[in-house]
Nucleic acid binder design. Structure first.
Lengths: 336, 336
DNA sequence: ATGAAAGCGCTAACAA
DNA sequence: TTGTTAGCGCTTTCAT
């Protein structure tokens, strides 16, 4: 690597002052003769000048960083997309992403405090699951955006997936495909599940199709659908298929539930989609594409969320609504 | 948030000089009366002093950051674990993690250049797949560690998964379980596949069990096992199961291949593991645990890799070997 | 053992 | 239009 070039060097070379060089390079705000500016820019280019952002950061009190405080560093596989998208979009806007993990062992406060020490341009807080969070006043003040969650206080802008609409969309799609009797193996104990049930009911209401309440079932016992929660998929599917009439569609809380539903149906010798259709949420591609038959599912808008987040954080988008709901996309495959 | 406390403030309060305070707080290297040191530390504590790391960084030319330049920000779902582990371990050592994405659009050089501008304590480069990379001399000089890959030049320390050993282990485990005829739906075109074949053969050799070469098959057509590569699983499984004798075990290149194998076997009405056992690599838990029956698989040591990486980067571990191979763990479930 | 002063590289305020 | 001077908050000589 070449040795570092400083403002000093290019000032000396051109026989002007450091400040002039600084002014010439930092935006067009400072007035000066076009010619000087050009000369300076040319020289800077030639020498390969790169401003020392740490020095600049100290002077200005801000580093060109977006700090992401993330719950479990967004472990959910597909949620990686949020971070990647944030990173890509952020960089295009001149900001680097610094991530820090919070969780059970370390609270949000600690994560935010760590972030703050680098005097970032903006700080975002992201959760693994869509949910409401209760931020301390101090944290709420420090944070510029919440991703996949929203503050109970309602003062912090938020970007979240539109779960209600997603459920309504997939249900409508089922109706369009001629399906009428939809069972829903929903995710228990989480906000997404509640919201999707809303959408599920709304879509039924819109077509005046009655909801069969005892077909709204939790995919697992216990509060969450985690890796370790006890699955209820097999018994539920077995019972549903024994009913008369039986559902013509099983809507799943996520692609992993669908994976289990496939297993249960295989066991029963029931064909997808001819005997019963399956649809889901997430579009965890490695699962959804590889299932046999490939799974029709509503794709979580993680990429769009990351992009929107970066724009808001960079101050590009005027944070219109307090809570921005990003729509899912329907991915049609052949399970429905 | 309270107002910032500066060295100045605590110096004034105690009637000592700034330098004395600085000296007292920064390690025990500077000699001074124990009493002064104690008083200063107490005052710092009381006022809630937090050094301004940007100012310090400028002065020292180093920020307490580990910069991770990652190919695709390590999209592979389970590989998130590397980042998380790096973050957790790094923080325990006083370092924050800054991540930046590189890929087709933006080369390693650009990523490293971006990282360098923040004058981090250390820089690591990570890839999605275990493979050899060819780094420019400049990049190789700037990088302190490669994760999941190693430089062709051989000058950069590396942390990689031990694919050879993993394959040998799972094959031995099959033998221990009484299995003798193992087919291998390997990952084509990637280093992990080659290395695992080595291990596969070595384990056979160790027990003097012959390898059936035409049972070593690629899971997909084309160079890689990607989301979009055309799968060969179904035809291969069908052919294998029609052979005589047929394999008693199908070893899969990863859990997603196994997912497809399950689908193919279901179609053929073949039971797992009574008719044929299935085993795999990765331990992508959301798949492996949810398959029916749950999948026995070799867990990629991502967490251990992240931890080791952080230790090396923080300068804790004397980078013993140039290339550190981290062992997989056998996760026994019931498919074998 | 402690203090004074210089300076990291940059930009903001004030002069010229 | 450009140069000079002060810092940003910290650490590091060099004196004392």
């Amino acid at each position: 690597m070449k040795k570092k070039v400083h403002l000093r060097d290019i000032a000396d070379k051109l026989g002007v002052s450091v400040k002039t060089v600084s002014g010439a390079l930092s935006g067009d705000s400072i007035r000066m003769s076009e010619e000087t500016r050009k000369r300076i820019k040319a020289a800077a280019e030639e020498l390969g000048y790169q401003p020392n952002i740490v020095a600049r950061g100290m002077r200005q009190g801000v580093l060109p960083i977006i700090s992401l405080v993330a719950e479990g560093l967004i472990t959910l596989p597909f949620a990686t997309e949020i971070v990647r998208s944030l990173d890509n979009t952020g960089r295009a806007l001149g900001l680097s992403v610094m991530a820090t993990n919070v969780g059970s062992a370390r609270g949000i406060d600690a994560g935010v405090a760590e972030a703050l020490r680098f005097t970032p341009k903006a700080i975002a807080f992201a959760t693994m699951f869509h949910r409401e969070v209760t931020l301390s006043a101090e944290v709420a003040r420090s944070i510029d955006l919440t991703i996949n969650c929203f503050d109970a206080g309602g003062q912090v802008p938020a970007v979240v997936p539109d779960d209600v609409q997603a459920a309504a969309d997939i249900v409508s799609h089922c109706f369009d495909k001629g399906r009428r009797r939809i069972a829903f193996l929903n995710l228990p104990g989480i906000l997404a599940g509640q919201l999707r049930e809303e959408g599920f009911r709304a879509a039924h209401a819109a077509r005046c199709i009655p909801v069969q309440d005892n077909w709204l079932l939790p995919a697992t016992r216990g509060a969450h659908y985690t890796e370790f929660a006890m699955s209820l998929v097999q018994p539920h599917v077995t019972a549903l298929m024994a009913a008369s009439p039986r559902p013509d569609t099983i809507l799943c809380g996520n692609d992993r539930v669908a994976l289990e539903v496939y297993g249960a149906l295989h066991r029963l010798g029931i064909a997808i989609p001819s005997d019963v259709a399956v649809a889901s949420f997430d579009n965890q591609a490695e699962i959804a594409r590889r299932l046999d038959p490939p799974l029709t599912t509503m794709a979580l808008p993680h990429r769009a969320m990351g992009r929107r987040a970066a724009e808001i954080l960079a101050g590009i988008t005027p944070a219109e609504a307090q809570i921005q709901r990003i729509p899912f996309r329907l991915i049609e495959r052949s399970s429905l």
